[in-house]
Structure formats: C-alpha cells, structure tokens
C-alpha cells in the first residue's frame, strides 16, 4: 500500500474519532429511551471548554475534564426537561443545540486565533511498527487510544453488566423495568449524562487534538452526523466504530483530494461528508425496517408511573 493511502487511512481514524465519541455517548442516551438532538451544541461547548482550559492551564488533560463537565452540565438541562418535566425530546434537544451554538460562539470570541498546546501523537511501542495497521491505528494521540478503550468498555457495559441490562430494559419496556425495581428516571439521567460527557470529549478532540484551535461552529454538523450514525450502528458500540471511521474516511479522502489539487471545486468536496451521511442513513433505515431491529421501543417516549 502506498504511503499516501496509509496516510489517508490514519487521517480517517483521526477524523472519525470525535464523531465516534459523540456516537457512543448518544447510543447510551438512546438505549435508555432518551433521544438527545443536542449533541451538536454539547460538542461545541465541550470544544470551547476544552480549548480554553488547555490554553489557560497548559494541560490538555484538564481541558478534557472541563469539556466532559461542560457536556454533562448541558446534557442535564435536557435530562431535566425531557425526563423530569416530560417535555418533547426533539424540541428540547433542538433548544440545546441552538443554545450551545450561541453560548460557545459568544464566550469563545476572544479565543479565535489563540494557539494551544494540545494532544500530540505518539507511537505505541511495538504496535506502532506493524505495517499499515501501525501507522493507521497506533501512531495516534492519547485520545484516539482512549476511544479504543471506550468502545470496549461501552460494549462490555451494555451487554455484560447488570446495569447494561437494566438500561436496555428501561429503553425497551420502562414499565416492566419499573416493576422490576429499576429506577427508570435515575438510569435515564445517568445515560443522558454519559451522552453529554462523551459529546463534550468529542468536541474537545476537535479543538485540542484534531486541530489546536478554536473556530466558531467548528463541529460543522458532526453532532448531527453522530445522531445519524447511531441509527447506522443499530445502537451497537462496535458498529459505531465502523460508521465513524467510514465518515472519517470520506472526510480524509475529500481533504486529500483538496490538497492534491485535482481541480474539483473545494465547496463541492466539502459536501461529501453530509451527502455520505444521508446515504448511510438511507441504507441503515432500510436495514432496520426490514429486520425490525435496533430502535429501542421506548425511544423519545417519556415515562411516568401513572401513564400520563
């Protein structure tokens, strides 16, 4: 394989990583029955919080913590509205995205053009020397490695722990889970918060690892793409990896085509990730409709014991 192809593959992993974090988080929220369309807003605020903290302290790991906290804080607004107050989940998520977009752009204005010392790539000893796979997967930055661990942890938590069983039950049959003694609201709050944390981390990846700068609206729809990839992934963490890296691949390829000067108009190349996501969504929808699998039965439905 040519060095250019390997470089594109490595770039695909990097471009897919922020979306992977956000997709994993949204899988938890939706598995518990809460649709959160605020991913875009949480990613933006996470990106800003991570960037500002990294600039101020010089420690990208502190930035990551700040981004996770910011994402969690925003997600709790959605949780209060959609779980406790039983407001419309789509409307509440949209409000969150509008709010997060405005908040991050308002507070971040003085940080445009400021440099930050973010996460740097380092090869994993041994693994980094494997042909093709080494440069693609194991010469990345710490957050990419963290994402590998998170995929495994998410899969294990969902399918191999009692808590995972409970949260899946809450998303499928909340009344049955309640009768079994599971605190539906508590599980949902926890899962929405996980979604917020991971969206914040995904945002911080963009501003402290993928690039080391803050730009208004720098997520450019990645939060929405994550929501679409959750459907493509049929709510499964392992398939989320495939979706995120496919998205990353399209992104890396269009960047490569821009840089190699093929004469294709830049703005048409930039459309590729969005068009790709729509195509993927169509394919995924056909699959889930045909096989009747995936969608948590209680998704976007609020729950209360008296049925109201």
């Amino acid at each position: 394989m040519s060095p250019a192809a390997v470089a594109v593959l490595a770039a695909a992993v990097r471009a897919g990583t922020p979306v992977l974090f956000a997709t994993l988080g949204e899988i938890f929220a939706e598995r518990s029955g809460v649709l959160n369309l605020g991913v875009e807003g949480m990613m933006l605020v996470g990106a800003l919080a991570g960037f500002v903290t990294t600039v101020r302290t010089g420690h990208p790991w502190l930035g990551l913590l700040a981004a996770a906290a910011a994402g969690a804080a925003l997600s709790l607004v959605h949780a209060v509205l959609s779980i406790s107050l039983r407001a419309n989940q789509i409307a509440s998520g949209l409000a969150l995205t509008i709010f997060g977009t405005g908040l991050s752009a308002s507070l971040g204005r003085s940080y445009i053009g400021v440099p930050a010392a973010g996460f740097q790539p380092f090869p994993l000893p041994g693994l980094g020397d494997i042909p093709i796979l080494g440069p693609m997967l194991f010469r990345q930055d710490a957050l990419v490695y963290l994402s590998y661990a998170l995929v495994a942890a998410a899969w294990y938590a969902l399918y191999r722990t009692r808590w995972g069983l409970e949260l899946r039950a809450v998303g499928e049959r909340p009344e049955a889970a309640d009768a079994m003694g599971v605190d539906v609201a508590r599980v949902r709050y926890g899962c929405v918060a996980i979604g917020g944390v991971l969206a914040g981390v995904g945002g911080a990846y963009l501003s402290t690892a993928y690039t080391s700068m803050w730009i208004e609206n720098m997520t450019a729809g990645r939060g929405w793409i994550a929501v679409a990839l959750v459907i493509f992934a049929t709510w499964d963490p392992l398939r989320a990896v495939l979706g995120a890296y496919l998205f990353g691949g399209v992104n890396a390829l269009q960047l490569y085509l821009q840089a190699s000067g093929t004469g294709l108009p830049v703005y048409l190349l930039l459309m590729a990730p969005y068009v790709f996501t729509m195509v993927v969504l169509v394919i995924a929808t056909r699959g889930t409709v045909r096989r009747r699998l995936g969608t948590p039965a209680a998704l976007s439905l609020s729950y209360s014991r008296d049925g109201g």
Partner: peptide, 10 residues
C-alpha cells in the same frame, strides 16, 4: 441572540 433564543426555548 442564539444563546437567548435557546434559553427562551428551554
């Protein structure tokens, strides 16, 4: 303005 719009929506 967007921040305020989001808050009003919430």
């Amino acid at each position: 303005v967007y921040m305020l719009q989001g808050l009003i929506f919430f």
